[in-house]
Computed example of a mutant assay.
Amino acid sequence: MGEQPYEAFTAGWARGPLVGFDTETTGVDVARDRIVTAAVVLRVPGVSNDVRTWLLDPGVEIPAEAAAIHGITTEHARAHGAAPAVALEEIAAELAAHLREGVPVVAYNAAFDLSLLDAELARHGLATLPERLGHTVTPVLDPLVIDRWQDRYRPGKRRLGDLVAHYGIQATDDLHNADVDVLATLDVLDALVHQFPVLGTLSLEDLHHAQVGAHHAWARNFNEWRVTQGFEGPGASTAWPVEPARG
C-alpha cells in the first residue's frame, strides 16, 4: 500500500473550525502580571480567519522590558486601552461561546495564556472560563506540547519563532503581536498535522488527554534534569492546560 494522502487523515477536527488565542502581557507571572493585548481568531480551515483584538489599560506600569517585546508602553495603554473588566469579559465570553460549541482553543504554551486569563478574570470579579463552562477548559490544542510530544528528540529551542522557522511558515509580520502570534500558532498546528498525520485521526477528547500526559511527562523529565544540573527553584509545572489557582 502506498502512503495515504494528508487529506485522508483530516475528516475530523482538523477540517473544522479552530479558535486561536494569545496575549501580550506585563510579564511572565500568571498570578500577578496583567494582559496588555489579546487576540482571538476563529479559523475555518481553507475558508477564513475572523480576527478580534483588544488593547487593555492594565492598570499598572508596563515594564520597559515587556514594552520592548510587544511595543505597548504604559502611556499608550492608558491613552488608548479599554478598561480591563470590559475587555476581559468580552474575551472570556468569546472563548466560552466557542468552547460550548465544541470548537477547540488553540494556544501556544496554553498554560500561560489560559492561566493568566483566569487570574485576570478573578482579579476583576468576573467568572473564570471553568466557571462559565461548568467544567475544566477543554478541548485545548497546544502546538508547543504537541511538538515536544511528537518530535521529542529534536535538538534546539522551541519558542514560537523557532517552530515557525522549523516548519517553514511565512509569518505575515513580526511575532509578539497577539494577532500575528495567533495566526502563526494556527499555521504551526496545521504543519504539525501534516508532519504527524496520526494527530488528525484522534478525537479532540483523546488528543486533549494525550497532551495532558505528554506535558506532565516532559515537565517531570525537565525537572529531573534541572536537579542533575544543580538548578534551584520550582522548575516547570506539570499542570496543563491551566495552572491551579494559587491560594
Results as ranks from 00 to 15, higher is better:
L18H: 13
T136M: 10
A66F: 00
V105S: 01
V41D: 03
L192M: 14
V36T: 02
V28E: 08
H80T: 11
L133Q: 07
L189E: 00
I169G: 04
V103G: 06
D142S: 06
P84R: 05
H135Q: 14
R132V: 05
P63M: 02
S203C: 11
I91S: 00
G230I: 05
E24L: 06
H216C: 04
E24G: 01
D206M: 11
L56K: 03
G233N: 06
N221D: 15
A96Q: 07
V44M: 11
D190A: 15
E61Q: 12
R154D: 09
A64D: 14
E131N: 06
L99E: 00
V86F: 13
R246S: 15
Q4C: 12
A92D: 01
A8C: 14
L55M: 13
I146F: 02
G71S: 11
R152N: 05
L202N: 08
G12Q: 12
L117P: 04
H166Q: 14
R132Y: 07
L126Q: 09
P84D: 02
G200I: 04
W54E: 00
L207K: 05
A239E: 10
F196G: 00
L42D: 07
G2W: 14
V164T: 11
G16F: 01
Q150M: 14
V198N: 11
R32E: 13
G2F: 15
A68K: 12
L18G: 00
P58V: 00
V198W: 12
T74S: 14
P244R: 09
T185L: 07
L186A: 03
P155Y: 12
V105I: 15
E101W: 04
I62H: 02
A97V: 04
T23L: 15
E101T: 08
R159W: 06
V36E: 01
E89T: 13
H194N: 10
I72M: 11
W240S: 07
P17H: 02
Y6H: 15
V242E: 01
E90K: 13
T10W: 04
L95A: 03
D142M: 05
L56F: 03
R78Q: 13
R226I: 02
A97K: 10
